[in-house]
Every structure is written in structure tokens, then in C-alpha cells.
Design a protein around this nucleic acid. Structure first.
Length: 402
DNA sequence: TTACATGATTTTAG
DNA sequence: CTAAAATCATGTAA
């Protein structure tokens, strides 16, 4: 700031000749007249230079005097012009703002998280809908959600308050500077263009502060979000009944445990969980069953027997109560294979009309195990590889463990 | 506290 | 996209 006057003044001598202001000084003919004008000009400049040294009243008076001088507008224009050519052209090149991509990123994120968007709607509503859709067990879920929403709205409130404060401060400061510059532009060569430039600089400064605010807000949201996600990851076991239903379906469709979309929906409904959870459950069940069939045999027997009993009861109302013997069918997979359940499985699957054991009816249970273990369900259910040579029952736990 | 069970998520393959 | 496989992170029984 303080170098502008220097530059201005240092150009002053050339200016007179250059800018045509006092042209008549030379044309005017008589030297005394020209000398007088020169002197007058020098006086004016001297006054400008010393104006800051004056006391306020004195300066005010001189300012007034200067303002009223007939040469003032022309001189002012010249000063502005010179200044424009020298000072401003230097920094004129680096004016353009790069439109910071990071700022845009932050803005987008804040908008997406519903912090800077419309007041209370958008994401919250969608999230609420999702929460509501995620099963009847809404209590826990919605509690977490409302917690999240409360925290989010807290962040949003802080954000808006701060933003408003910044905005206000920026406006105040801008107005102040503008007034100051306008005021000074009466005595200093300050063009409107320069004022505008100054305002831009101020705005940029403030928006960089705002960016910091946005950044920290984003961080806060991210932290909150990750916490919420972690919370959401908190596992809650399904209730007993749901597990029963799922297991029942799984073991009664053991040959092809891939419930259709409709079946999943139905199961989801019955178990009060989401379809996605049903899918998760079946995904986990399939892989874990396949990985260690032995471990699941007992469970398989139990559900198979239950299904059989149910089917029997349904078909012949005779309440057979045929001593299911299932709960303790076999202590281990090995004993299971050779002991009782072969028949049980056959009968059960036969009752269910399941295609699985088509090729297995003739084979023993052991082969069934090996087929299932090797093949998996997806591609090759054909038990042509029933061979299972020399494979004792012990080979069942060919698990690679976890 | 540990080991295992289990729902959910991420990675990988088709 | 779906499903398998791997992995995570918690719930729970011992």
C-alpha cells in the first residue's frame, strides 16, 4: 500500500509531458505563464505528498481545497491511468481463480450428506425410509438412526451458524473497505475497478476461511458416519424362530438351497428380517455348510426329521409321534454316516419330492456327503463322481478350518 | 477371558 | 449383477 504513492510520484515528472494535461504550458507561449503553472502543479503535488503529515482538520481543509481545484479531475484521471498501467498490470495476470476442485468436492459432499442442502429433508427422509424398510425390528434401528440424525443436525447447525457468521463478517468487512476506498478515492487515485479487485481479494480470503470450515465439517461428518456405520455393523442375532424357519428351508432344499426372490421375500416376511438378510444368511449357510458338512449333520438331521414329521402329520393326520430320535442322532459326523440317518434322509427327501437324492437313493450317505462336499450346488449336482474311493467316514471333516 | 458362532461386509470370479 | 470365499466384528457360552 505504501509503495503506491512512491510509484505515483516517481512518475510524476514524466506524466506532465506525457499525458497532455498541461499542454498549453508549452503552447501557451509566454514562459512566465508556463512557469507559473508549473509552480502551481508542483504546489499541488507537494500538498498531496504532505497531506498525511497534516493534522486532521488541516488536512480536511486542504483536501477540500484540492478537491475544488479546477485541475483536480484531470490530474486524478492521469494518476489513475498511470497507476493502472504500472501497478495493476503487474498483478493483473494472476487474477483468475482456479475454481478450486477441492472446494467443489467438499461442497458436493456436504450437499450429499444433507448438511448444506435443504433444511431437514432429503437424506434423512431416505434414511428413515430405509430404516423402516429394514424390518419390523425398528426400535433398535430407529434409535440408532435418530441418534445419527441428531448428531448430524447438530453438525449442520454449527455449520450454518459459522457460515452465517463468516458471511456476515465478510460483508461487513467488504462494506467497510469499500467505503474506505471510496472515501480515499477522492484524494487517491483509486479506480472503481481497483475497488472491485479489492473486494474480490477479500472474498477470496474469506472463502478460504470458509473452506476450512467446510473441511472440518466434512471431517466431523465422516467421523460420525464411520461411527454410525460401525454401529450398523453391530451384529444382532436373529431370534430363534427366524433361525428355525431359515434352517427349515435350507435343509428341506438342501439339494438346491437357492431360494428364489419370491421365496426370499416370503422368508424375510416370516422371519421379520430383510430380503438382504435372508440372502446373507443363505450365503453364509451355504458356504459354512459346504466347508464343514460334518459339523452340520446333526442339525441337518434334526430339521430333516422335523420336516418329515410335519409332512407326515400334514398328510396323515394320524399324529404318529414316531419317536423322532433326532435330537441326539449322532454325536459325531463319523458315527452319523454309518448309523441311522441314511434312511431318514432318503425318506425325507422323498417326501419333499426333492431331486437331490435321485442318484443317491442307491448310494449310502457317505457318498452323499462326498458329492455335496466336492461339487457344491451351483454347477454339477450330478453325482457321477460318487466313487469316493477308500474314503472312510473320517474324511468328512476335511475342513480347512477357519 | 477365550473360543467359537454368526450376521455383515469386502473381495474375487464368472 | 449374483454367488463364493474371505474377512470383520460382535454375541455368547464355557
Amino acid at each position: 500500500m505504501d509503495e503506491q504513492p512512491r510509484m505515483m510520484l516517481s512518475h510524476t515528472p514524466g506524466m506532465a509531458a506525457h499525458a497532455g494535461l498541461p499542454q498549453h504550458v508549452h503552447e501557451g507561449g509566454t514562459a512566465p505563464d508556463g512557469d507559473a503553472r508549473k509552480q502551481e502543479l508542483g504546489e499541488i503535488l507537494q500538498q498531496i505528498m504532505t497531506i498525511t503529515d497534516q493534522s486532521l482538520d488541516e488536512a480536511q481543509a486542504r483536501k477540500h481545497g484540492l478537491n475544488c481545484h479546477r485541475m483536480k479531475p484531470a490530474l486524478f484521471n492521469v494518476l489513475c491511468e498511470i497507476k493502472e498501467k504500472t501497478v495493476l498490470s503487474i498483478r493483473g495476470a494472476q487474477e483468475e481463480e482456479p475454481l478450486d476442485p477441492q472446494l467443489m468436492r467438499l461442497d458436493n459432499m456436504l450437499l450429499a450428506e444433507g448438511v448444506s442442502g435443504p433444511d431437514k429433508g432429503g437424506g434423512s427422509v431416505a434414511a428413515a425410509a430405509a430404516a423402516a424398510a429394514s424390518g419390523g425390528v425398528g426400535a433398535d434401528n430407529s434409535a440408532e438412526h435418530s441418534d445419527y440424525r441428531a448428531k448430524l443436525s447438530q453438525i449442520r447447525q454449527i455449520y450454518h451458524t459459522e457460515l452465517e457468521k463468516y458471511e456476515q463478517a465478510c460483508n461487513e468487512f467488504t462494506t467497510h473497505v469499500m467505503n474506505l476506498l471510496r472515501e480515499q478515492s477522492r484524494t487517491r487515485p483509486i479506480s472503481p475497478k481497483e475497488i472491485e479487485r479489492m473486494v474480490n481479494i477479500i472474498h477470496r480470503k474469506f472463502s478460504s476461511i470458509q473452506m476450512q470450515l467446510k473441511q472440518s465439517t466434512c471431517e466431523a461428518v465422516m467421523i460420525l458416519r464411520s461411527r454410525f456405520l460401525d454401529a450398523r455393523r453391530k451384529r444382532r442375532n436373529f431370534n430363534k424362530q427366524a433361525t428355525e424357519i431359515l434352517n427349515e428351508y435350507f435343509y428341506s432344499h438342501l439339494s438346491n438351497p437357492y431360494p428364489s426372490e419370491e421365496a426370499k421375500e416370503e422368508l424375510a416376511k416370516k422371519c421379520s428380517i430383510t430380503v438382504a438378510q435372508v440372502s446373507n444368511w443363505f450365503g453364509n449357510k451355504r458356504i459354512r455348510y459346504k466347508k464343514n458338512i460334518g459339523k452340520f449333520q446333526e442339525e441337518a438331521n434334526m430339521y430333516a426329521a422335523r420336516t418329515a414329521v410335519n409332512a407326515a402329520n400334514a398328510s396323515s393326520h394320524g399324529s404318529q409321534a414316531n419317536s423322532p430320535s433326532t435330537p441326539n442322532s449322532a454325536g459325531s459326523a463319523a458315527s452319523f454316516n454309518v448309523s441311522n440317518s441314511g434312511d431318514l434322509f432318503m425318506s425325507v427327501h422323498a417326501l419333499n419330492g426333492d431331486s437331490f437324492q435321485g442318484a443317491q437313493v442307491g448310494a449310502n450317505v457317505q457318498s452323499q456327503v462326498s458329492v455335496t462336499a466336492n461339487g457344491g450346488w451351483q454347477d454339477a449336482p450330478t453325482p457321477s463322481s460318487v466313487t469316493s474311493p477308500t474314503e472312510g467316514p473320517g474324511s468328512v471333516h476335511s475342513d480347512t478350518s477357519n
